[in-house]
Design a binder for these strands. Structure first.
Lengths: 190, 190
DNA sequence: ATAAAAGTGAACAAGATATTCGGTATAAAA
DNA sequence: TTTTATACCGAATATCTTGTTCACTTTTAT
């Protein structure tokens, strides 16, 4: 790929990321982005169809990164039977989110995280699914439960950010597992 | 208050409500609203500073209504010691939400429910607080827990709407209580 | 060296927000 | 009933944002 393309693409991503840590997504204009990225208007639209597509790609990159690492851990360890695994993975994800603090804060900060959250939830659903397969013991529908777990995770992240990421990932993972019924069994055996 | 004011205000609210059941909040323009409400542009801005303020007021009205009814039940019954109360109240709220289906769907439908959800959560926090006072038994911070419960409720509503309100309020209240640890104790004694 | 690809900036159309202003209709007070 | 205040009207306007077009320049690859 052309070196110029990479550079502009990176410049746009970087500018967008910077802006997200300052103001919320809806308030950011394309003008803001191209000013900060120092690229032409035409160039922006050559790379990204709309501002939404840019966000979409940023989210994809971010989650791909965060979850691939988490899933690497999963593949190097034999995960299916180790009882503390959910805790390990959750902690990992939280660490990676904290590393990307700058990006996610702007997206989640109070308003307009819909797109981000939809992405996030999608990844989480996929992520949590393996832990759910044999948990039909609860008297609630499967998709209600998975929705509840993923939603609770996201909700926790928002709480975390509002608290300015004071809580450690380990402690947060504890809280999460303590409050989610499906995983309670696992954690209480420790 | 001037009769004309009431009429236009009501017309705007009604138009807005109608539009919300057709298209999502962000897609609705002020032009749409004043066309449907059949009022002048100036009039709209005389009543509401911005479109956001209109939504804000609509939300306030809605929640005021929903929760006041729920709290009425609370005051007529002796709530503090009846074990099935949480279930009764939650069911009530769900019924009222279903009655206002038309309004909330447009706001929550996929995008841009931030404002609504913030309001909702605020009310829910207040609502759930009395049930929390003596529940420090869990090994998670109090505000984490209340955030988790309110968040789970909202998350459930979104699941419900996506499912086109198929589930009955009673069943949904069951699911909710089954999945929320603080209330598990109550429900399991039945 | 040259053709292909990428970037530039200015201009433009379309659509939305929010304000202004002179004039009209209506409600409440005299 | 007349008067007065105020709510409403609608057209015009300034401003902002998005997304496109076009003629031109720079960079990369062969």
């Amino acid at each position: 790929m052309d070196r110029r393309q990479q550079k502009t693409r990176q410049a746009i991503f970087h500018a967008f990321s910077e802006l997200l840590s300052v103001k919320s997504y809806t308030k950011i204009t394309v003008q803001d982005i191209i000013d900060m990225a120092n690229v032409g208007r035409t160039t922006f639209y050559a790379h990204f169809e709309t501002k939404d597509h840019l966000l979409r790609e940023l989210c994809t990159d971010l989650f791909e990164h965060v979850f691939s690492k988490a899933l690497n851990v999963e593949s190097t360890h034999d995960f299916s039977l180790t009882e503390s695994n959910p805790h390990v993975f959750i902690t990992h994800i939280l660490y990676h989110l904290r590393d990307n603090k700058k990006n996610i804060i702007g997206i989640l900060n109070c308003e307009s995280g819909e797109l981000f959250l939809r992405f996030f939830k999608q990844y989480l659903n996929e992520f949590f699914t393996p832990y759910m397969v044999n948990k039909e013991c609860h008297d609630v529908p499967y998709d209600f439960l998975i929705n509840h777990i993923s939603g609770s995770f996201i909700n926790m992240i928002q709480w975390w950010i509002k608290d300015d990421l004071q809580t450690t990932p380990e402690k947060l993972a504890d809280y999460f597992l303590a409050v989610i019924p499906s995983f309670c069994d696992n954690i209480k055996e420790n």
